[in-house]
Amino acid sequence: MLATNLKILSVVLGTILFYTYLAGSIPQVESEVPAELDLSANVTAEELVAAGEELYAGGGGCLACHGTGTRAPNLLEPDGATGLIGERCGQRVEGMVCKEYLHASLIRPTDFVVPGFDPIMPDMSRTLSESQVWTLVAYLESLGGEVTVSSEDLAASAADPAGGATAGSAAPASTTMEPMALLEENQCLVCHQLGDQGAPIGPPFTDVGARRDVDFIRSKVLDPASVQPAEGYEALAGTMPTTFGTQLSAAQLEVIVQFLAEQR
């Protein structure tokens, strides 16, 4: 009686254990919740800040200028008496609260150039979605200030549904193959002069084909630090963004390089 019961018990338990072992012996794949930020829903300030921080150091490319070196205001450290960016942002422009100022600075950077710096910052709305811009604002506010960005801001700016914080690389804004349009789009003329267009910050494009060959131009565009800065422009070394490699398609890059090489 007892022996039979024990036998039955061991058969039952043995079968269950076998199945449990079998399922545990294969490689385990867990279905994780995708990290995408659902910005259309009730997003919390913490989520916005976290997404913004990731973007700031990663795909947004902000760290290239704001954080190291002296070519742009350092946003990660206190600026003398005015404190961190989250504290000082509200006092920068008369009549603009912190949130508005930061947002405007991101999408219309040349409007509020801090004295002592060159107007080299590109319009971030070209490479980031509207909701990503707001995550950056939230992150900057969190540095020493209070986060006031909320889901209403996102809704008001008609956030695109898929534009989560995961869009790591800055996708090219367009697919045009027109050289002038490309120069315009990628903000080359913010620093370089071509004819009567552009600003005289970096070396001019006007006769670049006479000074440099195709290979040099390509290297310079892709990796500005790989070649010697032009004579007379050493002080600006490191100012040129390093993001063109991801911003341009290969074909677009060739269009620009060939176009510049023809400027003699």
Partner: peptide, 21 residues
């Protein structure tokens, strides 16, 4: 260690293509 790689994993219902859903 051997790992299990799914050749045809499930696609999402919606993707963001250059920011466009």
């Amino acid at each position: 260690p051997p790992n299990l790689r799914s050749i045809h994993p499930a696609p999402p219902s919606q993707i963001s293509f250059r920011g466009q859903p």
